[in-house]
């Protein structure tokens, strides 16, 4: 069955007009309260991942092979979670340690666009099919964009 139909997109037109404030608030709180346990669960997992993986760990996983490193960067960027600033800081440290720019770009891109830790929440709230396809496409794109960025930098000198 097509997900679009499943998710109610087709029926939007026929659903009537605006609702009153009380009904709207009740509907909003009902929807929101269903999300709270999922968001708390994801926060718990992200906190554990953040506490368990020291920043220094990332520099030890790269091999020196640019192609392999871009894949490794994308994988670890996908697994990591937290504020994007953290990925910039780690990326800056990796750059100082001689890790290739393509690997760092893939790492940063995957960090901000792919979410393995957030996947359960995205899956439960927006649908497993949607979450899986979006994260997979974003993962592959992080490698493609990283290569394009480095290529463009080379062209621009």
């Amino acid at each position: 069955m097509d997900s679009k139909k499943d998710s109610g997109q087709g029926g939007a037109e026929g659903r009537g007009t605006r609702q009153g404030p009380v009904k709207s608030m009740r509907k909003t709180l009902n929807a929101f309260s269903q999300m709270i346990p999922i968001i708390i669960g994801v926060l718990l997992l992200i906190s554990l991942a953040t506490a368990a993986v020291p920043k220094e760990f990332y520099s030890s996983v790269f091999t020196g092979n640019e192609i392999l490193d871009s894949l490794i960067g994308a994988v670890f960027g996908s697994l990591a979670a937290g504020n994007p600033v953290t990925s910039y800081v780690i990326g800056g440290e990796l750059l100082l340690r001689g890790i290739s720019l393509v690997a760092i770009a893939a790492f940063i891109l995957a960090w901000v666009t792919v979410g393995v830790v957030q996947f359960p929440a995205e899956s439960m709230i927006l649908g497993r099919g949607f979450a899986f396809k979006r994260n997979l496409v974003s993962f592959l794109m992080s490698i493609v964009i990283a290569c394009l960025v480095v290529f463009s930098l080379g062209v621009l000198g």
């Binding site: 997900s3 998710s7 346990p37 899956s123 439960m124 497993r128």
Partner: peptide, 29 residues
């Protein structure tokens, strides 16, 4: 989204469902 059911969260996945059953969100927590 199988069998015409909405994909993703459209009710009953978070807090306990009516009838005392635990929703998916609570299980995840």
């Amino acid at each position: 989204g199988k069998e015409g059911r909405p994909e993703g969260m459209s009710g009953g996945a978070g807090m306990g469902k009516p009838g005392g059953r635990i929703g998916t969100g609570m299980k995840f927590l």
